Amino acid sequence: MELKTNKSIHSERFDLQRRAVSHVTTTSWHDIPHISYIYEPDITDFYNEFKILLNNKINLENKISFNTIMLKVITEGLLKSPDLNSYIEYNHKKTEGMTHIFDEINISVPWLLPNGKMITPTIPRVEKMSLNDISEYISNLTKRIENTNVNEVFYRAVVADTIHELKRFNLSVIRRILASKIGRYRIKGLCGKEKEDYYKIPENERLTEKDIRAGTVTVSNIGSLYKNQKGFFGLLEIIPPQVFAIGIGSIQEKPGVYLNPNGNKEIGIRKILPICLAFDHRAVDFNSLVPFLKRLDEIFAKPNVIHKW
């Protein structure tokens, strides 16, 4: 049988952002043995308490979103499971490895740009932040991203990553360097007056490569992209050298068993939040996830604690 070639509408070569994403995610699936756990907590009471919180803080300049409060919830879980907030170094040939556990929780948050592309800025030191602090930081991120040349940030991040790999004597990056400098589709940063004008913008008013390379854990919220979707993450990539990634879905109504005010079990319509938790099995086992899960269970069962945040 003769094979017919389908005609494409148009073709687009990967730009720098797509090249960076494809490199990182391919490295993730090539190197990391992923373990994925689907967590589906009943957040009915928690969500009701969240609505009360919003009414109490209605005059705040920066509104506290559901995504904001979930970042705080996740931070509380990570404080109980510090092994998950770490980097891994591993040499497959020597079967030697090391885990670097951090006290700073720097959350990388995939961010949708107006042109449909994604960037992953980092919210640093979230463990030190109140809900208002997180909300204010996210609001400021919006302004900084507007002042950012995304291609230039990715270019600087690629350069920094290449230098890091060379310092580790990873000579395989030499091919990457040659392709980026003398290849047909070589990579270029800003130059001339355009570069001069761009770097006049203070770093606290735009993103730098540090903002997309400093994350210790990644939290993706697909619920914010499509609130009415009924599915959930089944698996997502862990961004090396991180060892933990979280994918938050959309709140869904499902039948469930709960305790009524009299302490009796009933069946009713409940709000369920599907969350995918993926970890690098080289660095941690499932037992490292247990304190994280228990802390989230506590918060969802007794959500009054959010008023102290």
Rank of each mutant, 00 (worst) to 15 (best):
K4W: 06
K7T: 08
R18W: 04
S22P: 10
T27V: 10
W29D: 05
H30S: 15
D31R: 15
I35G: 06
S36G: 02
P41I: 12
D42S: 13
D42P: 06
K51C: 11
I52K: 12
N59M: 00
N67S: 13
K72G: 01
P82C: 10
N85W: 11
N91K: 02
G97P: 03
I107F: 10
V109M: 14
L113R: 01
N115S: 04
K117V: 00
I119R: 04
R125M: 14
I134A: 04
S135W: 04
K143I: 14
K143F: 14
E146N: 15
N147P: 02
V150T: 01
N151W: 06
V153A: 04
F154M: 13
Y155A: 01
V158F: 13
V159L: 14
H164T: 03
H164A: 14
R168F: 09
F169H: 12
R175L: 12
L178M: 10
K188D: 07
E194C: 11
K195M: 15
K195D: 08
I201C: 05
I212Y: 08
G215K: 05
N228P: 07
N228R: 12
K230L: 15
F232H: 09
I239W: 07
A245L: 07
A245H: 03
A245W: 05
Q252G: 06
K254V: 01
P255E: 03
Y258Q: 07
P261K: 12
N262T: 03
K271S: 15
K271L: 13
P274T: 04
H281Y: 09
F286A: 14
N287W: 08
R295A: 13
L296I: 09
I299N: 03
K302R: 10
H307Q: 09
H307Y: 14
W309Y: 12
